[in-house]
Structure formats: C-alpha cells, structure tokens
C-alpha cells in the first residue's frame, strides 16, 4: 500500500535515525513510502501557545499536502495527535473543517499503524537488552495507544521488557512548558527517571522522540547510566 510518512521538524533535524528506521521497516514490509519534503511542522507550537491563527498558518500546508494521501503515518505520537485530534478542532469553524475531519481518519501513529492497521507484530528484529517503555501522553491519551508498542517489543529477539512504576505518568516535557516552567518540568522528569532507573533497564524506549529528548537531556546532565532509544530504532535492528 502507499504510505505517506510525515517526519516532523524535530525528528528530521535531531533524530533522523527514527525516520530512517521507519522508512526501512515499512519498505521491508513491501509498502511504497513517500516523505513529502514541503511540510516540516504540524503547527503544534502555535496551537499549544494559544495562537491558533499562527498554528493554522503552518497546519494548513500540512492539510493541503496530505489531502490525497491514502495512509498518513506520523513519526511522533504527539504530532500524530495534533493531526488526528486537534486539526478538527483547529479548523472547526473554517472552510477546511471537512478536510481536517477527512485527514483525521487517515492518520496513524507508527506503532499503531503496524499493529492495528497492518496486523504485524514480529518484524524479525533482534535487540539484546533490558528495556522499559515510557508511554508518551499524546499517544496514550489522545490516541489511546497502549498495547501496540508493547506487542511489537514483545516480539523482539533477546529483548526483555520490564514495566516501570507509573509508566503512564508524564515525563514533564510538554513542549514549550519545558522551557516556560523548567523547574516543574525538571522535577517531573526526575520522578520519571527514578521510576525507570528502578527497573535496572539498559534503555528507556518510547514512541515519542520529544519525551526522549527531555529524558535523555536530564540523564546526560545528571550522569545516569540508562540510555534512551525510539521504538522504531529497535524494530529496525536485525
């Protein structure tokens, strides 16, 4: 099938391995992948800041470019929630309301697309490590994705998944919140890291690079032994 992979700006610029892994996985499964170059951001920064007009200025481009895409896979749970859940509200009273509704139905977060749409869990990956999974809030609560990433991890050879206490508790990133209220964001991150460290895992895995950027930033600064990695990077290892 034809898959349009939307790699949002921060994944593109900071975590290219995540996008590359997704392309490789989807192509290995026999799908045709296209990655539109003209769009970079979903518009969430403006939306979350309350500047909905500025958000629409960005989002409208995404909406128009993806108008005819058959299946849109987004390389971040958070940006996925923006397209799937918040576009219909953002464009609610505009002439693009129905376009936003239509796109919403075609949007998938990566792990959910593999498991729920393609029915695939075993990608033949091998990753010899102990890992713990952090649920990114947007993927978990806006998109309702709890099971798919775990189903995928369970099939990875030599990987041991250890659930941490409060896996569903926010890591404290929250977009601009992280810099507007760094003290709260940091405290939340410390609580999250402590839960992850308790599992003695080698890696914290998530399906959202934004959470991992925040968590890794704290871990590096505090010299903690655990590392972070995106789910797709594990799934592409053979």
């Amino acid at each position: 099938m034809n898959v349009t992979l939307f790699v949002p700006c921060f994944v593109d610029a900071l975590f290219p391995r995540v996008g590359i892994s997704m392309v490789q996985i989807l192509e290995r499964l026999g799908h045709r992948v296209e990655c539109p170059e003209e769009i970079a951001c979903c518009g969430q920064p403006g939306f979350n800041s309350g500047c909905w007009q500025e958000s629409r200025d960005v989002a409208v481009k995404v909406l128009d470019r993806l108008k005819d895409a058959e299946h849109v896979v987004v390389a971040s749970g958070s940006c996925g929630a923006m397209l799937k859940v918040f576009y219909p509200e953002l464009f609610g009273k505009t002439d693009r309301a129905s376009a936003a509704q239509s796109l919403s139905k075609r949007v998938w977060e990566f792990s959910d697309f593999l498991v729920s749409k393609l029915g695939v869990t075993d990608l033949g990956a091998r990753f010899p490590a102990k890992v713990t999974f952090h649920d990114g809030c947007h993927g978990l609560r806006e998109l309702g994705i709890k099971r798919p990433p775990r189903a995928l991890l369970e099939k990875v050879r030599d990987l041991q998944l250890i659930e941490m206490k409060d896996a569903e508790t926010c890591c404290g990133f929250g977009g601009m919140f992280a810099t507007k209220f760094p003290m709260i964001s940091t405290a939340m991150g410390e609580v999250k890291c402590a839960s992850a460290l308790d599992t003695q895992a080698d890696y914290i895995v998530s399906n959202d690079s934004s959470c991992l950027m925040h968590v890794q930033g704290l871990l590096t600064r505090q010299g903690k032994p655990i590392k972070t990695i995106h789910l797709a990077e594990i799934l592409s290892q053979t």
């Binding site: 806006e142 569903e168 926010c170 929250g174 919140f177």
Partner: peptide
C-alpha cells in the same frame, strides 16, 4: 500554561 497537557 503551567501544564504539560498530559491528560491524566
């Protein structure tokens, strides 16, 4: 603004 919008 003092929220990560986690939805818990």
């Amino acid at each position: 603004s003092a929220s990560s919008l986690c939805g818990a």
